[in-house]
Amino acid sequence: MLTVRNLTVFRGHIQALTDVSFDVSTGDVLVILGANGAGKSTLLGAIAGLYPPRNGEILLDGALLNGLSPEAIVRKGLCLVPENRQLFPFLSVRDNLLLGAFHRYRRNRKGLDGDLTKIVTLFPALQEKLNSPAHTLSGGLQQMVAIGRGLAADPRILLMDEPSIGLAPLVVKEIMQTIRRLKEQGHTIILVEQNARAALSVADRALVLERGRVTLSGTPGELTKSSGLFTAYLGKHR
């Protein structure tokens, strides 16, 4: 459903991505692995419209997304849960979640209560925090709000940028379980993670980025067999 072809992206004068190509099919979880600075966040940002590509194509069901603004891309059904959560800190959890549905709020105001219920069912811990300002929550709960806000957009593809970063191991486990549950519900997900083992456990396919290029791709099984994964991780070349 999503096709990325020969994507090249610059961040300032630095070429952050070179000739990146991959496909994501409906219902799949694609995991993107790589060391710090390999271009993972840039890749998600480029798909979400934050960084316009210099070259290449991003196609959603054959329709070109290049050059659209982030707010237009959300409307097309791609929603990014950004790195470091990026909540609206002084708004309540409820408002954060509802704003996730901003692009369809006017058309579907009534349906939103049901969506809110669905999100709270997924993250029961948020129930009693709905009226608290988002910045007062723990990191794990904030991450849940961020994912919930992404889901509120009712996206066809959910892009998640390092949802486990800075969280305690138990919370990471919980987040990964959530992703697994979302996958079972049929969501299509692109997940960027540093935590390779956790991420591969939910992946259908994975690719490894190294210095802005795809160096490995395949199913989790294929990847773990390849020694390249670990060198990519340590950022070493032999």
């Binding site: 419209g49 603004s69 982030p70 959300v74 990026q86 609206f88 704003l99 806000r149």
Partner: peptide, 18 residues
């Protein structure tokens, strides 16, 4: 609230379609 959201975090506001 959407205006306030954009005042707090412009990028995140764009990502939800504001």
């Amino acid at each position: 609230k959407a205006v306030r959201a954009a005042m707090m975090n412009r990028t995140a506001a764009q990502l939800v379609g504001i």
